[in-house]
Design a protein around this nucleic acid. Structure first.
Lengths: 147, 147
DNA sequence: GGCGAATTGACAACATGTTGACAACCTCGG
DNA sequence: CCGAGGTTGTCAACATGTTGTCAATTCGCC
């Protein structure tokens, strides 16, 4: 199989990633609106929950592939809305440690449940193997761009 | 194989789509900067080229999964930069037909060549079958959300 | 200990996307 | 023919991301 045919498929994947990204943001906004949360804020909650321990802004940014400035703005706004807690960082005066507040934990937990049902609906008719191949391919493409 | 395991993989795909989307936008901006073009503008050029005939703003928006307002703003700016041509639409006084100018065609062609080499590098080590599975899965997920 | 380099927070300017609203235009059924 | 309802362009407000810059802080090496 010649590589020549991979170009067009690759281009279609790129366009589909753009399109799907937009749809996922809209869907996330819709699901989160009940709790006054947007897709971007949801991602922050997820990153903190996944990490399991308080994180600094640059750490969150790194794990999500965003700039620290973008994360900083979201985090500042979310603290004002009582979704996050800032703690002093022993050993670094400027870089505060950020963790989920009780409200943040509650909201994330409810969103997780809501998302689980939605994910099941969306992946109906797609096999586990297909999903795993897709994830692997997307990760390899990300990796090829990153370095 | 139980469906229960599909949820976590699905969630990872969602996060990877967000991350990859960001990387692709940056990469597109980088490649287009030589011609004074951004990822968003590139997508407009691509949509018009793919259509093969002049399109209205709502038509472009539909094919790209964006709102007509977002497309309108890009298209207006691109006409000012001589990348696009507006033609009167016989049969509709408001909805102008938009097509690539000579400059637009030239720029798109050069970007296409540039992107081809890049796509080959990115897809190194990924089989045609894997790429096709990925595209199919992404399209099915989009489809599941859309309706 | 101290100095140069890297990290971090803060602020600004900009690009790109959304939603909402309004008026002008088009279409189609009665 | 005409009026109701959908389509289109336009404008505004906002959310989210980027890059660039600056000062404060921290880190690593001598």
């Amino acid at each position: 199989m010649s590589d020549a045919q991979k170009g067009p498929v690759f281009t279609e994947i790129v366009l589909e990633v753009f399109k799907l990204g937009g749809l996922l943001v809209s869907e996330g906004d819709r699901m989160g609106s009940e709790y006054g949360i947007t897709s971007a804020r949801w991602k922050i909650l997820g990153a903190l929950s996944l990490a399991g321990e308080p994180q600094t802004v640059p750490q969150i940014a790194g794990s999500m592939g965003l700039t620290r400035q973008a994360v900083q703005r979201l985090v500042d706004a979310m603290q004002k809305d009582n979704l996050l807690l800032f703690q002093d960082n022993p050993g670094h005066k400027r870089a505060k440690l950020i963790s989920l507040s009780d409200l943040g934990k509650t909201v994330y937990s409810k969103l997780y449940d809501k998302q689980s049902g939605w994910a099941k609906t969306c992946s109906a008719g797609i096999t586990q193997a297909e999903l795993e191949t897709t994830l692997s391919v997307l990760e390899r493409i990300s990796g090829a761009i990153d370095r």
